[in-house]
Nucleic acid binder design. Sequence first.
DNA 1: CGGACTTTTGAAGTAATTCAAGGGGAGTGG
DNA 2: CCACTCCCCTTGAATTACTTCAAAAGTCCG
Lengths: 232, 232
Amino acid sequence: MDLHPDLAILERTELFRDTPAPALRAAAGAASRRRVAAGETVFRQGDASAMLYVVVVGRLCASQTTPDGQQVIIRYLGPGEVAGYAALAGAACYPGSVTAVDDTHLFCWSRVAITQIMREHSAVAINAVALIGARYHELQLRLRELATERVEQRLAHTILRLVAQAGRRTANGIEIAFPLSRQDLSEMAGTTLHTVSRTLSAWEEQGVVRSGRRRVIVAAPDTLAAIAGAPG
Amino acid sequence: MDLHPDLAILERTELFRDTPAPALRAAAGAASRRRVAAGETVFRQGDASAMLYVVVVGRLCASQTTPDGQQVIIRYLGPGEVAGYAALAGAACYPGSVTAVDDTHLFCWSRVAITQIMREHSAVAINAVALIGARYHELQLRLRELATERVEQRLAHTILRLVAQAGRRTANGIEIAFPLSRQDLSEMAGTTLHTVSRTLSAWEEQGVVRSGRRRVIVAAPDTLAAIAGAPG
DNA sequence: CGGACTTTTGAAGTAATTCAAGGGGAGTGG
DNA sequence: CCACTCCCCTTGAATTACTTCAAAAGTCCG
């Protein structure tokens, strides 16, 4: 049906889905491409927010660094998701850094181009509202978890979210489909790598998870959900 | 200049500022009004997100409640700010509750009406993106604080934010211009009212703040900023 | 097989919560 | 106007969940 394969990709992204054909064509026409190898940086916290990115294949990690060098992982981004929303929202600088955790293929637009597309195609702007709204909601949830829950519960929630987002069925359970260290988990759950290691060890003993060097496999998602839900 | 006083109000709100006249007129035409007395609820967590609100005068508090009844305060909302962004973003239910902390006067639109306005006036949709983007950024910052800082620093940051948002100059310093209990502060900073009370007592001794029953006055904003910034 | 990175685990330390009790202000009703 | 009541705030003491410090053991890669 589609003459241009880019259109088929775009219409599956969170920013351009259910958008009329002219909007898709405008987006495809203005898009550039970029490849980023695993470990490389897409942009850095504080850089001028010149570009908006959409993941085509691969996976990115959005993080924030404190003045004294501590990191917090905001989110992982998979295919179809937007990175650099600051360029959408009109912020001057990126509030965090984005790096690739796998080799990644991106579409990108200049801030001017994407603003123009939103102005001319309100469906895209409305998708942008929905998308940032969903992220906002997610962050509210995490804020609540961080403010009210114990480390074990937070870690369970964190892993369950990763499973929902990037889980892959295997013989032993559901594997999180990208490399993920104890340190990474601690930076998502707001704790230390030591506590994560201890907790995973305990869970491993109970048969809830299997894990190794930068790998996590959830053997019993229900038990994990129970841990996440229970006050104790 | 303006024949209709509503237009003058709308063009100062974060959602409609810098928007062309037809968009303002459409918004004014579709708006309803609502008054809420201090302590009353605008909407509840889980309600269908039928309406979008903009504060005209007064102040609201957006909070979230955990299944076991603990509350977290997400944000206070002053004149010009939007409540119920779920209706903008297309979420089915409100993710949190909103109540009035002062007698408050609101404009409101049905979800259908505001969606229609965004569709026909992309400037409004673009403002919505900017507005939710700014909130998202703010939440990222709080997440980072909660994950990396000590209670005293978090509380200092919390109070400084409130001062920036609703500070009123007085003889003794800058007063937060709405009733704010220790419990409220604890629900914002992710701690207990006991710890907040102890911390404020200590600060009072150092002359950094003056405080009383649901009142907080910051006498030395610079010292507070130093506490917020310093690791110790 | 060397070397860097990741993970594990023990022990000590501590920030903050929880438990507990009392005090004070503001508003209300007699 | 005074007393009663309801909140809200304060402060001590005990407890604990988690961090910090420290060292060692795996694991992957060239």
